[in-house]
Write a protein that binds this DNA or RNA. Sequence first.
DNA 1: GCCTCGGTTGTCAGTCACTGACAAGCTCGT
DNA 2: ACGAGCTTGTCAGTGACTGACAACCGAGGC
Lengths: 209, 209
Amino acid sequence: MTKSSCYDATVMSPAPPRSGLREVTRRAVQAEIANTAMTLFVEQGYEETTIEQVAAAVGMSGRSVFRYFATKEDMVVGSMAQVGHDIAAALRTRPAEEPAWEALRRALDEPLRALNDDGGIALARSTLLTTTPALRAAQRQKHAQWNELLVPGITPRLEGSAASRQLQAEAIVAAALACLDVAVDEWTRSGGEKPLDELLDAAIAAVRG
Amino acid sequence: MTKSSCYDATVMSPAPPRSGLREVTRRAVQAEIANTAMTLFVEQGYEETTIEQVAAAVGMSGRSVFRYFATKEDMVVGSMAQVGHDIAAALRTRPAEEPAWEALRRALDEPLRALNDDGGIALARSTLLTTTPALRAAQRQKHAQWNELLVPGITPRLEGSAASRQLQAEAIVAAALACLDVAVDEWTRSGGEKPLDELLDAAIAAVRG
DNA sequence: GCCTCGGTTGTCAGTCACTGACAAGCTCGT
DNA sequence: ACGAGCTTGTCAGTGACTGACAACCGAGGC
């Protein structure tokens, strides 16, 4: 009965289109909460950290924290919604005649590089993600949303009836994101040593072999 | 801080190897709780149904319900753990030289048929699953466990170094299960009309095309 | 300078999933 | 019949999350 949250989160401001300055400060506060939370989570564990502790660390009431994040999990995975939109945007810039897999793979280049580059933080977050069941679940849910975001960019690259292309696109996107998950997991296990792009390419090659 | 649950669930009896009859009655009670819960969930919705209501309907205390199911979600998705083991077992019976994808696809034949056959209940459950975010998350977690169960049956069918085969196997299994998800989703949306096996084959063909 | 208005905040009270502890009851083997 | 082992209900508690309300704070109109 709790946490219906009805909308997504993180940018959980669909109703009031915040007016300029308000929005900026809101983002800032949101970012500070997220950072503080991440620090605490890494220090003492996700489950062992209460909302009250995070709130105290940022200097606000627990109630107010929930005015910035719909759920505790969103403090960690909230930003993934944005990444999903970025990938979808990148996909839209790919040439129309590019094959589905190729376009998808290229659309992942940018976020992949982002992960690989700021090694430290991304790796810490990824480790936290993979070691906390509740967070893994939340992460998977975000990925499912990526699916819906990416499918429209794939259907026009396929052949067959509309219904058939829909199913094909869903399958391809789901499989590609599954490969991404596998690659990121391996990357995380390797402590960020192995190059992410090669892992992803290997995963895709295995699937399509 | 809640629901660590440490072990899986449903068959959440790893410590005490229950002695014969005890185990039977336990399974029976478990099944009755699950059935009663499913009825209530379908009738009035998952989120809108409290544990207390389920407990009252079965005639026991809320506390005791949690002695049979680690979490509320497990009342719905608990049985999926068994299915995962079944698939893994089926995979082990496939000839060793059968290619990875083929063996995997064949190992899914049995559970697929089970879904398609008892149309009513499975479809109702599947519909509840797809319309309740919390349950979808739980379902995805179970699927992730299937991954780990199936990978060992795939690695020997691949080529390359041990590490390479591990990554390949993880990717293939994850992609195949992603295809399964897509197929089951479409099957659910079609009200059980479209044949599941054909949907799965179409999904796999799209991915590997 | 004051006042009002939209938005933000803290406080309080409540729901619900989930857990530990304990005492009482039931079942089984001997 | 009796004790060991399981199971059960009860009670008390934690923690995520929500609704309601009153107080506050900054920007615009007068």
